[in-house]
Amino acid sequence: MTYVKVCALDEVPADGALGVEVDGTPVAIARSGGDVFALNDICSHAEVSLSEGEVYNGTIECWLHGSCFDLRSGKPTNPPATQPVAIYKVRVEDGEVYVSLAGDD
């Protein structure tokens, strides 16, 4: 599996998100409760950037209509979104965040 370095960990706000791009794919890097997550940065409901929303209680909230997505599964936790967003494998090494868009190990 190929991991791509996307940012330094200290660039991602605690309980917040940062938008990056991996091989042309928009990715939101989110921190919640000390953990780091990576998911598609485009809301499945309104096609706006999720990384511009709020991160809380293990979710990221779309700033436009308020849909929340579980950071671990990408599944919406409330309407209006009904479709999940893709999640990606993430690892942190030596203060750097790496993401893999591949679906398997």
Rank of each mutant, 00 (worst) to 15 (best):
K5V: 11
A8S: 15
A8Y: 11
D10W: 06
E11P: 06
V12G: 04
A14R: 11
D15V: 05
D15E: 15
D15G: 06
G16D: 07
A17T: 02
D23M: 11
G24T: 04
G24Q: 01
A28Q: 08
A28E: 09
I29D: 01
R31Q: 15
S32F: 02
S32V: 03
G33M: 04
G33W: 03
G34C: 06
D35Y: 01
D35M: 06
D41L: 02
D41G: 07
D41W: 00
I42F: 04
C43R: 06
C43A: 11
H45I: 11
E47V: 10
V48H: 09
V48I: 15
V48N: 09
S49W: 11
S51E: 01
S51H: 04
S51I: 03
G53Q: 00
E54P: 07
N57G: 12
E61N: 07
E61C: 09
C62T: 02
C62I: 00
W63Y: 15
W63K: 08
L64E: 14
D70F: 04
L71E: 03
R72C: 12
S73Q: 07
S73R: 03
G74P: 08
P76M: 04
P76L: 05
P76D: 05
P79I: 02
T82C: 11
T82K: 10
Q83P: 07
P84H: 10
P84S: 12
V85W: 03
V85K: 02
I87Y: 05
I87F: 05
Y88N: 00
V90L: 07
R91V: 05
V92N: 05
V92P: 01
V92Q: 06
V92K: 00
D94N: 15
E96R: 03
E96Q: 05
A102L: 13
G103S: 13
D104I: 12
D105M: 13
D105H: 11
